[in-house]
């Protein structure tokens, strides 16, 4: 049987840990016996620009890039970025939004406004929208930078992957000092 290939799109801003999160996700999927490919563009990404990572998984994956209208889950690390990639989502797809705003340059200059209605726009168009205050949960876990693991925790609720696999993936990806906070952050995300 030819099983379907599915896609997840992560989007955020340089420095938010998008690439680390998608690395962990891929590792966990591979360890669970799936074929997986991921794709990202970096280079200029560190300089505060948009960062995206496509993750595609299934029995046999060809393209590391998803096509528009084909993504099951959009995981937005920054609120505005949700809108930028909305057209990648399948009708009926799941949207997870980190409720954090980072001003693009034109907003800082006062030349453009940060759209106020991101969440309502998304809610009007998609049935499952989860808004999470990841920085607050990361703080609670003891590491403000663990926003990405909080969001992985939220994402994990929608994927059929064993909890131990996730924990192993996180443990293998962070320096020993921050592992505990990241595991905690993951569970806080998973628990919402």
């Amino acid at each position: 049987m030819k099983s379907e290939v599915k896609s997840i799109l992560m989007a955020g801003v340089g420095g938010q840990g998008v690439l680390r999160a998608s690395d962990i996700l891929c590792q966990v999927m591979m360890d669970s016996g799936l074929d997986v490919k991921k794709s990202e563009v970096h280079g200029m990404a560190q300089r505060g620009g948009c960062v995206t990572s496509h993750v595609r998984y299934g029995q046999k994956v060809h393209s590391p890039l998803a096509k528009k209208g084909d993504v099951e889950i959009l995981l937005a690390f920054e609120k505005l970025e949700t809108l930028r990639y909305l057209d990648y989502l399948k009708p009926g797809g799941i949207v997870i939004i980190n409720d954090e705003e980072m001003n693009p340059p034109s907003v800082n200059l006062g030349a453009a406004a940060y759209p106020e209605t991101v969440v309502p726009i998304v809610r009007e168009r998609f049935p499952s929208v989860i808004v999470v205050n990841a920085p607050e949960l990361a703080d609670r876990a003891g590491n403000r930078r663990a926003v990405n693991t909080v969001l992985l925790g939220v994402l994990s609720k929608y994927l059929k992957i064993e909890e131990q696999q996730w924990e192993k993936g996180i443990r293998d990806s962070f320096p020993p000092k921050t592992v505990d906070a990241n595991i905690k952050a993951f569970h806080l995300g998973r628990g919402i």
């Binding site: 300089r47 909305l86 989502l89 406004a113």
Partner: peptide
């Protein structure tokens, strides 16, 4: 064209910037 839902508002661009 694949069916997809596009965003109805203008999205301010986010180009790379000096840190």
């Amino acid at each position: 064209k694949p069916e997809s839902i596009s965003c109805p508002v203008d999205i301010p661009p986010r180009p790379p910037n000096l840190c």
